[in-house]
C-alpha cells in the first residue's frame, strides 16, 4: 500500500514568472546546497563502507529540501537542534563540508573536535546546538531555548528537527505542552519520512496526521510537502512570523521520504517497505523537482545544473581529503571538556 504523500500531484513544476537576478542567484544557491548534501551523504556512505567512519551514520538522502528550505527561512541568530540524522541540516546551516566530514572521521578539526561524531554535530557560532542521539530527547531542550528567548525578550526563534517516530514519546508532548502553555517562539519540524527505523508510521501512531497532535496543545500546525523546497520555506516562514511576532509555537509536519536505510547498517528496503515504494518515491526526488523548476523558470539550463553538481562534488572530494588527512584529537583530549575549565568558572 502506498499512502498519499503531500503534494503528490506536482508531477510537473508550475511555471512562475521569471525571478529577478538576486532571487535567481538565491535559487541556484539552494540547488547547490541540496546537491552538496546529496553528494556529501553519498561520500559519507562510501567512507563508512571503507571503515573511515565508525559508529552509527544516518543519511539524509531524499530529505534535502527540508533542511535547505528551513534554513532559508531562518536568521543567523536563531537556535537549531536536530536528531542524529543531521548532516543535511548542518550543511544547509552553513557548516563547511570539511568540518562535518572531519567530525564523521573523528578527527581533531571536526566541528565537535572529533568527540561527537555523526550524531553530535555542533557549531555554537551558527546557533546549531547539536545533533542529539536519544529519540525525542532534544525536543524539550528546544523548548528551553525558546524559553530563554522569551526570558531575554529577543525575537529569535528556536527550531527543532525530529522524525515522526519521536511524536509518540513523552518528551515530545511535555515539550510542546509547555511551549504552547508559555507561548514560546519555538518551531517543531517533524520530518515525517514514514518510518521510525523499520516501523511504518501507521504501525506506531494512533493517528495518521501528525500535525493533529498540535491540537492537544492548541498549537498552530501545518502539513507540508517536504520534497518541494519552496513549500517548506514558505511554511517555515509562516511559523517564524508567528514565533517572532506572536511569540507562539508551531508544529510543522513535513512529509518527506528517506531514500536510504535508517542508518548505514540497515538495508534500503528490508522487510518494512518495498522496492517499488522506494522507486515510486524517488520520482519525487527534491533535487530533481527543484532543478526542473529552475530550468522551467529559465534561471538555469542543464549544463548549468551539471556545473552546480560538479562544484558540490568537488567540495565534497575536498572535504573527504581534508578529513582523511586531518590529525586525530590529541590523547589529552580524552580528559578535556568533561567539566568547564577552572579558570572559566566564575
Amino acid at each position: 500500500m502506498t499512502l498519499p504523500m503531500a503534494g503528490t500531484s506536482a508531477a510537473q513544476p508550475t511555471r512562475t514568472k521569471k525571478p529577478d537576478a538576486a532571487t535567481a542567484e538565491q535559487w541556484r544557491h539552494w540547488l547547490r546546497q541540496m546537491f552538496l548534501i546529496r553528494r556529501f551523504e553519498e561520500k559519507a556512505g562510501e567512507a563508512y563502507s571503507l571503515g573511515k567512519i565508525g559508529g552509527f551514520c544516518h543519511l539524509y538522502i531524499g530529505q534535502e529540501a527540508v533542511g535547505v528550505g528551513t534554513m532559508a527561512a531562518l536568521r543567523d541568530d536563531d537556535y537549531i537542534t536536530a536528531s542524529y540524522r543531521e548532516h543535511g541540516q548542518a550543511l544547509a546551516r552553513g557548516f563547511s563540508a570539511r568540518t562535518i566530514m572531519a567530525e564523521l572521521f573523528g578527527k581533531a578539526p571536526g566541528c565537535s573536535g572529533g568527540k561527537g561524531g555523526s550524531m553530535h554535530l555542533f557549531d555554537v557560532s551558527k546557533g546549531f546546538l547539536g545533533g542529539h542521539g536519544i529519540v525525542g530527547g532534544h525536543i524539550p531542550l528546544t523548548t528551553g531555548m525558546a524559553f530563554a528567548i522569551k526570558y531575554r525578550n529577543t525575537d529569535q526563534v528556536a527550531v527543532c528537527f525530529f522524525g515522526e517516530a519521536a511524536v509518540n514519546n513523552g518528551a515530545f508532548h511535555e515539550a510542546l505542552n509547555m511551549a504552547a502553555l508559555w507561548k514560546l517562539p519555538a518551531i517543531y519540524i517533524c520530518e515525517n519520512n514514514r518510518y521510525g527505523m523499520g516501523t511504518a508510521l501507521e504501525r506506531a501512531s494512533a493517528i495518521y496526521d501528525i500535525s493533529e497532535r498540535a491540537c492537544s496543545y492548541d498549537m498552530a500546525n501545518e502539513v507540508v510537502d517536504g520534497q518541494e523546497l519552496l513549500a517548506v520555506k514558505s511554511a517555515v516562514e509562516r511559523a517564524v512570523r508567528r514565533a517572532r511576532e506572536e511569540k507562539a509555537p508551531t508544529l510543522l509536519e513535513v512529509r518527506t521520504y528517506r531514500f536510504m536505510g535508517h542508518s548505514m547498517s540497515d538495508p534500503i528496503h528490508g522487510h518494512y517497505r518495498t522496492r517499488e515504494e522506494v522507486e515510486d518515491q524517488r520520482k519525487r526526488d527534491p533535487i530533481t523537482l527543484w532543478s526542473q523548476k529552475l530550468i522551467a523558470d529559465g534561471v538555469l539550463d542543464e549544463p548549468g545544473a551539471r556545473a552546480i553538481d560538479k562544484s558540490a562534488m568537488d567540495e565534497v572530494e575536498d572535504a573527504y581529503r581534508f578529513a582523511d588527512e586531518a590529525p586525530d584529537p590529541a590523547p589529552e583530549a580524552l580528559w578535556t571538556d568533561v567539566y568547564a575549565p577552572v579558570e572559566e568558572s566564575r
Partner: peptide
C-alpha cells in the same frame, strides 16, 4: 522530563 529538558536547553543558550 520536560522541564528538566527546558532547564538544560535554557542553560545551553
Amino acid at each position: 522530563l520536560g522541564f528538566a529538558g527546558v532547564g538544560v536547553g535554557a542553560a545551553m543558550v
